[in-house]
Simulated assay, not measured.
Amino acid sequence: MGKIAADQHVPSITRNDDFVLTAVVSSRNPEMPGIAWHKTLQSLFDDGPAIDAVALCTPPQVRYDLATLALERGVHVFLEKPPGATLTEVAVLEQQATKSGATLFAGWHSRFAAGVAPARAWLAARRIDSVSIVWREDVRVWHPGQAWIWEPGGLGVFDPGINALSIATDILPNAFFLTNATLSSPANRAAPIAADLTFRDTTGAPITMDLDWRQTGPQSWDITVETDAGTLKLAEGGAVLTLPEGTDSNEDEEYPGLYVRFASLIRGGRSEVDTQPLKLVADAFLRGTRIAVENFDD
């Protein structure tokens, strides 16, 4: 029951008639009247009220054991992004979900931004000439004092960067793969603070990606696609869509959309575990050149 749960999950659950928030798990009591509190998920299963589903909002490094605990009991599992610390553990979880009959949902919240679905529809009939992704933000604003994000498995700047990749893999009509990467890591941290990446799709169209956690002032979450029919731009993380015919901006419905999807999957007895964004990040760590930059301290 951390920041993302309080800011996004709880309000979205409250707004969704398919779910009732029954209990929270946290090392410290969040003091939510009428909501059961347990220090551990095991304690909740042993002594708490009966539950049908859990949303795991922990750092990815500890999520596998929690998800396994839930799936073994036939409890449906919503995984915050990224779905795990490794690709293999997520694949194992998917097998466990199939065996248990429970739903496993790897939620990519940026795919539910207002401009993403119309962008995908518009690009489906276009020739892609090039793509530019610029994802720059201030880590001190978005992850203050969060040591886990700098540790192995925490992804560093790819924690926000994977949001951009979740959009790109959803809207671009052709598969794409990494060709080169440079990862800039502070000398006192295990994970990168910035990265420059190049990809190309199966038609040869180039895709560039600029990630940086040292941005101050205005933040940049932009994807620009050059096509044979003009330029498409998704700004503000996918909330604002600009096409040759004009700009459309809508209210943020990312997390409410995730819970609508989670409920639909449960009703249908299905799972949805797309790991393609995580595969691209893994490829960057596998193939990228590492360079050391100045120390980073909160």
Rank of each mutant, 00 (worst) to 15 (best):
residue 237 G to E: 10
residue 22 T to G: 00
residue 32 M to V: 11
residue 256 P to V: 10
residue 252 D to N: 15
residue 33 P to E: 15
residue 227 T to C: 04
residue 220 S to N: 08
residue 98 T to V: 13
residue 195 A to M: 11
residue 115 G to A: 02
residue 64 Y to F: 15
residue 134 V to D: 10
residue 155 L to Y: 14
residue 131 V to Y: 05
residue 123 L to P: 15
residue 221 W to V: 04
residue 150 W to A: 12
residue 63 R to E: 00
residue 282 A to M: 08
residue 164 A to E: 01
residue 153 G to M: 12
residue 97 A to Y: 05
residue 128 I to T: 09
residue 210 D to E: 11
residue 287 R to E: 12
residue 183 L to G: 13
residue 257 G to E: 03
residue 131 V to W: 05
residue 168 A to T: 11
residue 1 M to N: 08
residue 18 D to H: 14
residue 268 G to H: 07
residue 281 V to P: 07
residue 216 T to C: 01
residue 26 S to T: 01
residue 105 F to L: 05
residue 212 D to M: 02
residue 102 A to M: 01
residue 176 F to V: 07
residue 39 K to I: 14
residue 51 I to F: 01
residue 52 D to G: 13
residue 230 G to H: 10
residue 169 T to G: 00
residue 156 G to A: 12
residue 267 R to P: 04
residue 117 A to Y: 12
residue 218 P to S: 01
residue 67 A to F: 09
residue 275 T to R: 00
residue 116 V to D: 07
residue 60 P to Y: 03
residue 100 S to E: 13
residue 90 V to G: 08
residue 232 L to H: 12
residue 103 T to C: 13
residue 199 F to Y: 15
residue 248 D to C: 04
residue 68 T to D: 08
residue 227 T to K: 03
residue 194 A to S: 14
residue 6 A to F: 04
residue 264 S to L: 09
residue 288 G to Q: 12
residue 119 A to G: 15
residue 141 V to K: 13
residue 161 G to F: 09
residue 149 I to S: 10
residue 132 S to C: 10
residue 229 A to V: 08
residue 12 S to H: 11
residue 13 I to Y: 13
residue 264 S to A: 15
residue 140 R to Q: 14
residue 228 D to F: 04
residue 142 W to S: 09
residue 234 L to Y: 11
residue 81 K to Q: 03
residue 20 V to P: 00
residue 224 T to K: 10
residue 176 F to I: 04
residue 127 R to Y: 02
residue 81 K to T: 01
residue 186 P to Q: 02
residue 65 D to M: 06
residue 95 Q to S: 15
residue 191 A to K: 02
residue 162 I to F: 00
residue 173 P to V: 06
residue 297 D to L: 01
residue 44 L to F: 00
residue 296 F to A: 10
residue 204 G to F: 05
residue 272 E to F: 08
residue 128 I to F: 05
residue 223 I to C: 13
residue 168 A to V: 07
residue 32 M to A: 11
residue 229 A to H: 11
residue 53 A to W: 08
residue 80 E to S: 06
residue 39 K to E: 15
residue 41 L to Q: 12
residue 283 D to V: 03
residue 143 H to M: 10
residue 81 K to L: 00
residue 54 V to N: 03
residue 234 L to K: 12
residue 170 D to Y: 03
residue 77 V to D: 02
residue 88 T to G: 05
residue 195 A to F: 11
residue 277 P to D: 04
residue 269 G to L: 02
residue 292 A to I: 06
residue 82 P to D: 02
residue 94 E to H: 11
residue 257 G to C: 03
residue 285 F to Y: 15
residue 172 L to N: 10
residue 236 E to R: 01
residue 93 L to M: 14
residue 206 P to K: 13
residue 105 F to W: 06
residue 30 P to G: 05
residue 254 E to A: 14
residue 14 T to C: 07
residue 113 A to R: 14
residue 192 P to Q: 03
residue 245 E to T: 15
residue 63 R to I: 00
residue 274 D to L: 01
residue 189 R to L: 15
residue 136 R to Y: 01
residue 91 A to N: 05
residue 285 F to S: 05
residue 171 I to M: 09
residue 46 D to P: 07
residue 40 T to F: 07
residue 184 S to M: 13
residue 190 A to S: 11
residue 119 A to Q: 14
residue 219 Q to I: 13
residue 189 R to V: 09
residue 49 P to T: 04
residue 198 T to Y: 03
residue 129 D to P: 01
residue 286 L to R: 14
residue 25 V to N: 05
residue 147 A to L: 15
residue 196 D to P: 07
residue 158 F to S: 09
residue 272 E to R: 04
residue 160 P to Q: 03
residue 119 A to M: 13
residue 212 D to V: 05
